[in-house]
Amino acid sequence: MEVRTIKVFTTVDNINLHTQVVDMSMTYGQQFGPTYLDGADVTKIKPHNSHEGKTFYVLPNDDTLRVEAFEYYHTTDPSFLGRYMSALNHTKKWKYPQVNGLTSIKWADNNCYLATALLTLQQIELKFNPPALQDAYYRARAGEAANFCALILAYCNKTVGELGDVRETMSYLFQHANLDSCKRVLNVVCKTCGQQQTTLKGVEAVMYMGTLSYEQFKKGVQIPCTCGKQATKYLVQQESPFVMMSAPPAQYELKHGTFTCASEYTGNYQCGHYKHITSKETLYCIDGALLTKSSEYKGPITDVFYKENSYTTTIK
C-alpha cells in the first residue's frame, strides 16, 4: 500500500517557510505537534488534498525554529505562539472599519479597549522592536488589523473576551517599542525636605499616572512627601515624541487643539466601556464603527496623549 502524501510549508514567522512532505494517514499533531492554519487549530486533523502548498504555523520545537521565533517575536515564552494563534482565530472574524481616516474595530468580545489602543497607536510616533509587531502594525494602518490585535493580546497575556485596560495595554506595548531616546527629568520640591531631581528613561519617561493635564504637570502637581507634608512635583525636561497622561476616570474637559487623542471610560472596574476622542479640525468621538463630532467635550476621561518633541522648564 502506497503512502499518500502532500507537500506543505511549516513556519513560526510566515517569513521562513520549511518544506514538509506530510503523510495523509496521520494527523498534523502526530507529525508536527500543535499546528495552526489561519489561526485555526488543526492539530487533530489529517492532511487533505486542499492543504497542498498551504502554510501551517507550528510551535518552535527545534533550534532553527526557536531562533526564527525569537528573532521575529522577541520572546522565548513557549506558550506565546499558541496564544497568538488562538487569538487570531477570533480577531480574523472582527470587522476593521476605516473611521475618520483611522483603522478602528467594530465592537465584539469586549474589544473596546483594543480599538482605543489601536486608534491611539496610529496617532503617536512609535516604532516597535519585534519585527512581528512592526509588520502587523503597518498592515493594521492599511486596514488589516487582525494579526496586530492578536499579537497585542498575546504580548499582554490576554484572551479574547476578557476586559482590558488601555493604560495597561499601552504599557505592555511600550515595553516592546523603541523608547531608548526618551528621557524625563522631574523635580520634587518640599518646604521641609528641599528639592530632589529624578531622571527617568524609556517607558517611565512617557507615562504618568495622577493627572490628565500635561500643562498642569509642567506647572506642578501636589504629591505627598515622605515627611508627610505636601510637596510639588513638576516637569523639568521632556525628550520624547509623545507623552501619555493618565488618571482614574473623572469628568474632564478636553479643549480642541490642546491634545492629540484621549480615552474615555464609562462604567466601573468590573464592567465598563471605552471610547476614543481625537482632536482634528474639530473633536471626534470614535466608538467602534461609530463616529460623532463636537466642538467641545466633557466626560469621564482616563488617558490623554500629547505630541511632544523637546521641553525644558522655565521655572527657576
Rank of each mutant, 00 (worst) to 15 (best):
V236D: 08
N157S: 08
G288R: 05
D165V: 12
T199A: 09
K92R: 10
T282K: 10
H256V: 09
D165M: 15
T116M: 05
V42K: 09
F259L: 05
V99S: 05
V160W: 03
Y138K: 12
E215I: 07
Q123C: 09
N157Q: 15
A140R: 01
T199F: 12
V21G: 09
N49Q: 15
S294H: 15
V236R: 04
E296H: 13
L119D: 13
K316P: 15
T5E: 15
L235E: 04
R83E: 00
K158Y: 14
E2I: 08
K158S: 05
L121Y: 05
K275F: 00
V236S: 07
N309D: 13
Y252E: 08
T211K: 01
Q237D: 09
Y172C: 14
L173S: 00
K95C: 15
A250M: 10
K54D: 11
H74G: 14
Y57I: 11
Q270L: 12
I301L: 06
L121K: 04
T226G: 08
F217W: 09
Y57D: 00
L235P: 07
P241H: 03
T159I: 08
A154S: 06
A250G: 09
V8G: 02
P47F: 04
I223V: 04
V58H: 02
Y72I: 08
N89V: 14
S86K: 14
R139H: 15
Y72T: 09
G33D: 01
E239L: 08
F148P: 00
N100C: 13
L200C: 13
T292D: 09
Q175G: 13
L254F: 04
T43R: 00
T282V: 11
L114Q: 01
V206A: 07
V3K: 10
I45A: 11
A289T: 08
P249C: 09
E253Q: 07
L133I: 01
Y234D: 06
D62S: 14
G101I: 11
K280N: 07
D23Q: 10
T76N: 11
F70K: 00
S263G: 05
A69H: 15
L291T: 13
M170D: 01
F305A: 07
L37D: 11
W107E: 11
P131T: 01
S79L: 11
E144H: 15
L291V: 14
P249G: 12
A117Q: 00
W107C: 14
R83G: 02
P300R: 14
S240H: 09
A247M: 09
L119Y: 04
G143F: 05
T75N: 11
N157V: 00
F56E: 06
V304E: 05
V243K: 08
I301W: 03
N147M: 09
K293G: 10
V67C: 11
T226D: 15
V304R: 04
C271W: 15
V243C: 09
F148E: 00
S213G: 05
D180M: 07
Y73Q: 00
S279T: 07
K158W: 02
Y306V: 04
A69S: 10
Q238P: 04
T64F: 08
Y36F: 08
A87T: 03
S295K: 14
F242G: 00
G210R: 06
T192I: 08
Y311K: 12
K298A: 15
L151T: 01
A87V: 08
A132V: 02
S246H: 07
Q31N: 10
N187M: 14
A154W: 00
S50K: 10
F174H: 01
L102Y: 11
K201G: 06
L114I: 14
F148H: 00
E308D: 11
T312D: 14
T43N: 07
T27M: 15
D165F: 02
F148R: 00
H74R: 10
K219H: 11
Y73G: 02
K44T: 15
A231R: 06
V185E: 01
G53A: 11
D303W: 01
I301D: 05
V160M: 04
P131A: 05
P131L: 01
I277R: 06
G228V: 08
H48G: 13
K93F: 09
L88E: 00
F148D: 01
